[in-house]
Design a protein around this nucleic acid. Sequence first.
DNA 1: GATAGTTTCATACAAATGTTTGAAATGCAA
DNA 2: TTGCATTTCAAACATTTGTATGAAACTATC
Lengths: 223, 223
Amino acid sequence: MASDQTRSAILAAAERLYADRGFGDVTLRDIVAEANVNLAAVNYHFGSKDELIAELFVTRSLQLNRERLRELRAAEDAGGGVADIADILRALVGPTLRGCLGPDTQHSTAARFMIRVNIESVPAIRRIRNREIDHLRKFIAAMKRALPDSGDVELYWGLHFALAMAQQTVRDTERLTKLSDGQCDVDDVEGVIARVVRVAVLALSAGDAASKAPARAMAREAR
Amino acid sequence: MASDQTRSAILAAAERLYADRGFGDVTLRDIVAEANVNLAAVNYHFGSKDELIAELFVTRSLQLNRERLRELRAAEDAGGGVADIADILRALVGPTLRGCLGPDTQHSTAARFMIRVNIESVPAIRRIRNREIDHLRKFIAAMKRALPDSGDVELYWGLHFALAMAQQTVRDTERLTKLSDGQCDVDDVEGVIARVVRVAVLALSAGDAASKAPARAMAREAR
DNA sequence: GATAGTTTCATACAAATGTTTGAAATGCAA
DNA sequence: TTGCATTTCAAACATTTGTATGAAACTATC
């Protein structure tokens, strides 16, 4: 393994192209042209196109999970072993949103790549994604420590909804912006994070109290 | 236009195959084999593969939007022109969840097709989806009537989050089920709808009061 | 500096795919 | 029936795609 130059060039070019044009219409020939390497280099260094995609995704995915856990640990350390529920959720959705939203997103290839992953979802990536569950369990455990009186089901739904809001915001930034005529400032990343976390916390605390009351009644109260 | 048999057979076969195996690996040859028609029939009747997909999506999409608006009108009529906010949100997410969730989903081709649309998102469909905005504006208008004191921005975010929770639940049913070891009963469709609506309503009411308070403080209160 | 292992390269392969074509079949009106 | 338009059909087309091959270039070790 003398020179990783070719390997790195392929990875960089592939990520850039996938980020810009999506998985659908980027061919190996596009990638090797962008990387200025030979067509056969991809199969030589990665085995197949899918393995190249997988390596790209795994790398970025591990980065994301690492960052999430780092923030989670920081929150738990600050709280002496039990973190604030809002901080837990922030550790969950913060890295994703910070990476994929904001004005500087235009300049980060890695971020644009992860957005594509969220939007398109090719089989090669979907297979890997299912391993994400172990990672999420760590957050469930932390949430259980923070809210020991909550039922497990509520925690699962709370985490699910938190991720839903974060990922949909990444996925459908354009629609939200258009719908609101730009009134929803998606570039204010920390603002978006705070908003998602706030609602997710509410969802968690609401689950217990009102899990049996019909939503209709709740809405009446809210008026 | 003597016989629409061929046309209909193609549409039905295509929807079935796309529902079962996704857009990625269903070819025209698969479709015509399933429909027992000639390969050239697709291009003759639809012009191209993309136009076939588009027609499938538009049909189901219009059905969905019609059902949403029907429920919205029903809610507004019942309230004398101004519907309950929970009912508005239920009209928004109910049809999607009822169509795509639940035990009977296994039997509805249309439902499974729309799930695929939510999961995969091919370019041909993404282009059409952007026209959905006008449809959503009607819900924003209804929400504004229901919550006249709410800021527009809060309404946009509320609708965005409601759709996020509904669509992610459709998209990631499997992950949620695995993560919770089956504890989250996604087959209880009306339960899921109530849950999504409840959180969305909360998100709307929370926006006003706490839009300036940091989420950290809110979480503390929630303890 | 010869040799063995690694990497690069041009090129070919094989398969799949959406689309087109032109003739045959069918349906329908005069 | 005749004639015209619509529809079906088998076959071919033209690309595009990921992958494989075998020789050449390169690198490092002895």
